[in-house]
Simulated assay, not measured.
Amino acid sequence: MITRDLDAFAAFARGCAPDFGPATAKAAFLVSPDGFARAEQSARDNRYMADAEAFDAERALREHRALHVALSRQLPTACFAGREDTPDALFPNNVFATAPGRLVVGRMRHAVRQREAGRDDIRGWFRDVLGYEEVDLSTQSHPCELTGALVIDRARGLGYCGLSERCDAAGAALMHAAFGLRATLLFDLAPGEYHTNVVLAVLAGRAAMVCADGFADARVADAIAGLYPHAVPLSTAERLAFAGNAISLAGGTVTMSATAGRALRPDSRRALAEAGFAVETVALSAIEAAGGSLRCCVAEVF
């Protein structure tokens, strides 16, 4: 099922057992922010990106190394080198994503990011080292920026796809098929929002962090929250601090940036604790100048 019908999706989703696959990844990979700089093409539709003078390449490299160390404590984490001609490559989850035994390569909207999809080293690692099948969406015409646009409940095989310049309905259908999902809900993001994973996080299949003002229709946010035993509504201030750009890589932990952690309201922290999540943070303020945060940096390996 792939639909915009909230009622139909909710009725179907409530009948889906958490038996689709592992709720969290078995490994992850990063791409180092070598060549870190403001990408003017990406800035056209990313309101979270700072001005060029706010970019600090050396501090971004230090933060990224600390992120690698922190994630490696939770699960095996590899890191590929960045490249000077791909300044956004430190956000690989938009370009590369996986389902068990399968690598999906996305089609980015901007040419500066389309270069990332051609990396033979990352494709070769999955093909020749891990033995993954490749599903290449990068050469077709419809933007589909993978787990930036599509937030996936891996336990139940459900997708939540926000449409924007970074993903159209045809691209969403291609991703739905590539990941083999049971059902995907399509909806419009609020004007100015570029990726779903800034306004929604599904944590280990049992909790959802949802910022209603990131959705064009707040009823969609309410419907998604209602599908989980633990819902964490996020305020505008929490969204702007990237609290929604969090990830659960281990069943009892949610990891986010230090900026996001400081912005969490007591009610949000309490809701996460009740869902069984300890909050871990990593300082990423230099990286966040590029308009993304911790979850954007992490490509999951299932």
Results as ranks from 00 to 15, higher is better:
Phe9Arg: 03
Pro18Ala: 13
Pro18Ser: 07
Pro18Val: 12
Phe20Leu: 12
Ala39Asn: 15
Ser42Thr: 15
Asn46Thr: 15
Tyr48Pro: 07
Glu53Ile: 13
Glu53His: 11
Phe55Ser: 00
Ala57Arg: 00
Glu58Met: 07
Arg62Leu: 14
Leu67Met: 11
Leu71Gly: 04
Leu71Tyr: 02
Arg73Ala: 11
Ala78Val: 14
Phe80Gln: 08
Phe80Tyr: 04
Ala81Lys: 10
Gly82Asn: 09
Leu90Gly: 03
Asn93His: 10
Val95Thr: 15
Leu103Arg: 12
Val104Leu: 15
Arg107Asp: 07
Arg109Tyr: 09
Glu116Cys: 10
Ala117Val: 11
Arg119Leu: 14
Asp136Phe: 07
Asp136His: 08
Leu137Gln: 05
Ser138Glu: 07
Thr139Asp: 13
Ser141Arg: 06
Val151His: 02
Cys161Met: 09
Gly162His: 10
Asp168Arg: 03
Ala170Gly: 04
Gly171Tyr: 01
Ala173Cys: 04
Asp188Thr: 06
Ala190Trp: 10
Glu193Ser: 08
Asn197Lys: 06
Val202Ser: 02
Gly214Trp: 02
Asp217Met: 01
Arg219Leu: 07
Asp222Met: 05
Gly226Thr: 05
Ala231Tyr: 10
Leu234Ile: 12
Ser235Lys: 05
Ser235Arg: 11
Ala237Arg: 13
Glu238Thr: 07
Leu240Met: 15
Phe242Ser: 03
Gly244Val: 11
Ile247Tyr: 00
Leu249Gly: 00
Ala250Val: 07
Gly251Met: 01
Gly252Lys: 05
Met256Ala: 03
Ser257Asn: 04
Ser257Lys: 02
Ala263Phe: 05
Ala263Asp: 10
Arg270Thr: 12
Ala275Tyr: 01
Glu280Met: 01
Gly291Arg: 00
Gly292Tyr: 00
Cys296Pro: 06
Val298Cys: 04
Val301Gln: 09
